[in-house]
Amino acid sequence: MAQLTIRPVETTRDRKTFVDLPFRLYADDPNWVPPLKGEALGLITPEKNGWFSHAKAQLFLAEEDGRVVGRISAHIDTLALTMPAEQGFGPGVGQWGLMDAEREDIFQALLARAEEWLRAQGMTRALGPVSMSIWEEPGLLIQGFDHPPTIMMGHAKPEYRAWIEAAGYACVKRLMTYDVDITKPFPPIVQRIIQSGEKNPRIRVREVDKRKFEEEAAIILGILNDAWSDNWGFVPLTPPEIEDVGVKLKPIVFNDLIRIAEVDGRPVAFMITLPDLNEAIAPLGGSLLPFGWAKLLLWLRHPKVKTVRVPLMGVVKAMQSSRLASQLAFMMIEYIRKASAENYGAVRGEIGWILEDNQGMVSIAETLEGDINKVYQVYARDL
């Protein structure tokens, strides 16, 4: 019988092996989107990921007779440790993620090793999967295996849910994405709300100006950190992370897909929409060579996509739960809906992820006649 060993990732070659494993495990899954390997390596390399400026991680590989059969990350975010416990993180809460395995016994051995590392670091509770920041790919997919994920959303094997729960983990939060038909106008009630807003001289909804990328990003970040500060799982973005995100997302930032709403000249809300980059990278098999880079560059010049995703939107806390907040949201959504369909050929929008108990956002998605198309769960247990 082959002997299973779990060992830490220590070298550049180990990190490449860590990144390569899912390409084999998901080779027969038509709905798994191979990430660009350079991006996946950057995520787990401290020198290339600003998240490591306030976090540390240990990666592990599982091997049988020299063959890699599983992987996991264990990590601690020092900013997350300072957050209120009722918001999901807080003192003593470590995380794990980036987990894949051929069999359940391998899965359990990896999870036990990650927990052992977290205990040695003084952690008293483990939460996961979070890969690796809450701003990246949190949660385990439990519904929506029949279609590929959009940009910056995760995919997983259906059996992982039972394996995690067998290890004593309980769901602490559900995250949902909503599928919205954007080929037709929204319901009459939404149109009336938008028309009323357009008559209000205090309101201005504008496109961002990519030529002023840093200035616009600072405005959005200010609203984001205020709007999301009371949300479950919130950890403020730091300057090194913002710089990294800017580098990654700038090529798929288009003025007409990102809006800032102003009231009396003050920015109070924003909505970010991205063309689904996964549609372009799925055929590349994780590599830009030999001709993938040219195909991607051509696509980026003027992307045509089936789907656009809304990963982030927010309204300053002082206005949340107000009628004006909903009005601004619907106005931004409608303007971006038109731009997405007319300028990029999109037929569907995906809103999320949305916390299951975020009543404001759930109400907006339902008013738009959106349907839940994917559900993710975050699990935790005491160590």
Results as ranks from 00 to 15, higher is better:
Tyr26Gly: 02
Ala27Asn: 12
Ala27Gly: 04
Ala27His: 15
Asp28Gly: 00
Asp28Lys: 14
Asp28Leu: 08
Asp28His: 12
Asp29Asn: 15
Asp29Gly: 02
Asp29Leu: 02
Pro30Asn: 11
Pro30Trp: 11
Pro30Phe: 12
Pro30Cys: 11
Pro30Thr: 14
Pro30Arg: 05
Asn31Leu: 03
Trp32Pro: 11
Val33Gln: 09
Val33Ser: 04
Pro34Cys: 11
Pro35Tyr: 04
Pro35Ile: 02
Pro35Phe: 03
Pro35Leu: 04
Pro35Val: 04
Leu36Ile: 15
Lys37Trp: 04
Lys37Leu: 04
Lys37Phe: 05
Gly38Asp: 13
Gly38Asn: 12
Glu39Ser: 08
Ala40Cys: 05
Leu41Ala: 05
Leu41Tyr: 12
Leu41Phe: 05
Ile44Trp: 01
Ile44Cys: 03
Thr45Trp: 00
Glu47Phe: 05
Lys48Leu: 13
Asn49Ile: 13
Asn49Pro: 05
Phe52Tyr: 15
Phe52Lys: 03
Phe52Asn: 05
Phe52Asp: 01
Ser53Pro: 09
Ser53Asp: 15
His54Arg: 13
His54Ser: 11
His54Lys: 09
Ala55Ile: 06
Ala55Trp: 07
Gln58Thr: 13
Leu61Tyr: 00
Leu61Lys: 01
Ala62Arg: 07
Ala62Val: 09
Ala62Leu: 08
Glu63His: 03
Glu64Cys: 14
Glu64Arg: 15
Asp65Trp: 02
Gly66Ile: 09
Gly66Thr: 12
Val68Met: 03
Val68Glu: 06
Val69Phe: 12
Val69Asn: 09
Gly70Asp: 04
Arg71Pro: 06
Arg71Val: 01
Ile72Lys: 06
Ile72Asn: 02
Ser73Phe: 04
Ser73Pro: 03
Ser73Gln: 03
Ser73Asp: 10
Ala74Asn: 10
His75Glu: 06
His75Trp: 07
His75Val: 09
His75Tyr: 00
His75Ile: 07
Ile76Gln: 13
Ile76Tyr: 05
Ile76Ser: 04
Thr78Val: 01
Thr78Cys: 02
Leu79Val: 00
Leu79Gln: 11
Leu79Asp: 14
Leu79Ile: 09
Leu79Lys: 13
Ala80Cys: 09
Thr82Lys: 15
Thr82Trp: 00
Thr82Asp: 15
Met83Leu: 04
Met83His: 06
Ala85Asn: 02
Gln87Phe: 01
Gln87Glu: 04
Gln87Thr: 07
Gly88Leu: 06
Gly88Phe: 07
Gly88Cys: 08
Phe89Ala: 14
Pro91Cys: 10
Pro91Gly: 08
Pro91Asp: 12
Pro91Ile: 09
Gly92Ser: 08
Gly92Arg: 13
Val93Arg: 14
Val93Cys: 12
Val93Glu: 12
Val93Met: 11
Gly94Ala: 07
Gly94Arg: 06
Gly94Val: 13
Gly94Met: 12
Gln95Asn: 14
Gln95Gly: 10
Gly97Tyr: 09
Gly97Thr: 12
Leu98Ala: 15
Met99Lys: 01
Asp100Val: 07
Ala101Asp: 10
Ala101Trp: 08
Ala101Phe: 08
Ala101Tyr: 05
Glu102Gln: 12
Glu102Phe: 00
Arg103Ile: 01
